[in-house]
Write a protein that binds this DNA or RNA. Structure first.
Length: 214
DNA sequence: TACCAGGTCCTCG
DNA sequence: CGAGGACATGGT
């Protein structure tokens, strides 16, 4: 599997996917666009983005897209808002913990937090595993950390590549690409797009990308 | 009606 | 350490 060639093939097949960061950048009161990304990373764990959007919109409407607001809002209130995203008990706790970390370690400044936090520090937070940590660092922090998810593993398997661990997949992709956060960002989004396309019924898997294996 | 969705944690062998 | 189960809602 040629990692870079596969990227170009996916990009030409699907075009840019327009993930984070978004362009909505005006800093209205109670709205922190970087924090929104961090929240999205948690909420989308094993959950469709469509469901996550309901929660993000509700948080926005209630001016809760900021660490301080999440830290002080009643857990029961937050639980109801998180509900459409599933796992609402766990995710409510995860958001509270994340917000508290940003307050404690960066005075509530999400941009400073994600710019200075180590990957290990993120992983030490309850509810942040390797994929969530890398998503945060890549999409909120603009750092070149490749994100591995189930679709990524499927794409590899599709090309006859199987690794033993998250870290091995990550090394496999990182080693095959320029260390460019923009490429990592778009590539992961394209892989998700590919995975969705592929899993659709009535639409058999198409071979996308190189097959220089065998 | 089942299965799946941009995973993680906990428990057990 | 790896496998297996729990967590929960909404769309198809």
């Amino acid at each position: 599997m040629d990692v870079l060639a596969t990227y170009h093939n996916l990009l030409s097949e699907y075009g840019p996917q327009g993930w984070w960061p978004r362009r909505t950048g005006d800093a209205r009161a109670g709205f922190d666009p970087i924090f929104e990304i961090l929240v999205g990373c948690v909420l989308t764990q094993n959950t469709s983005w469509q469901n996550v959007e309901k929660t993000i919109a509700a948080l926005y409407n209630r001016k809760l897209l900021a660490p301080k607001a999440i830290a002080i809002v009643r857990a029961e209130t937050l639980r109801r808002i998180v509900k459409p995203s599933g796992y609402f008990n766990q995710k409510t706790r995860k958001l509270k913990i994340l917000a508290r970390a940003i307050l404690d370690e960066a005075e509530g400044n999400s941009t400073n937090f994600i710019a200075s936090v180590s990957r290990d520090a993120l992983l030490s937070l309850w509810g942040v595993g390797p994929e969530t940590a890398d998503s945060m660092l890549l999409y909120a922090g603009g750092r070149a950390e490749f994100v591995i998810d189930t679709y990524t593993k499927r794409l590899c398997a599709h090309h006859g590549v199987v690794c033993d661990s998250y870290d091995e997949y990550k090394i496999f992709f990182s080693a095959g690409l320029p260390l460019d956060a923009g490429i990592f960002n778009e590539y992961h989004a394209l892989i998700v797009r590919w995975g969705k396309e592929k899993s659709r019924k009535h639409k058999p898997t198409e071979i996308i990308g190189e097959r220089r294996d065998v």
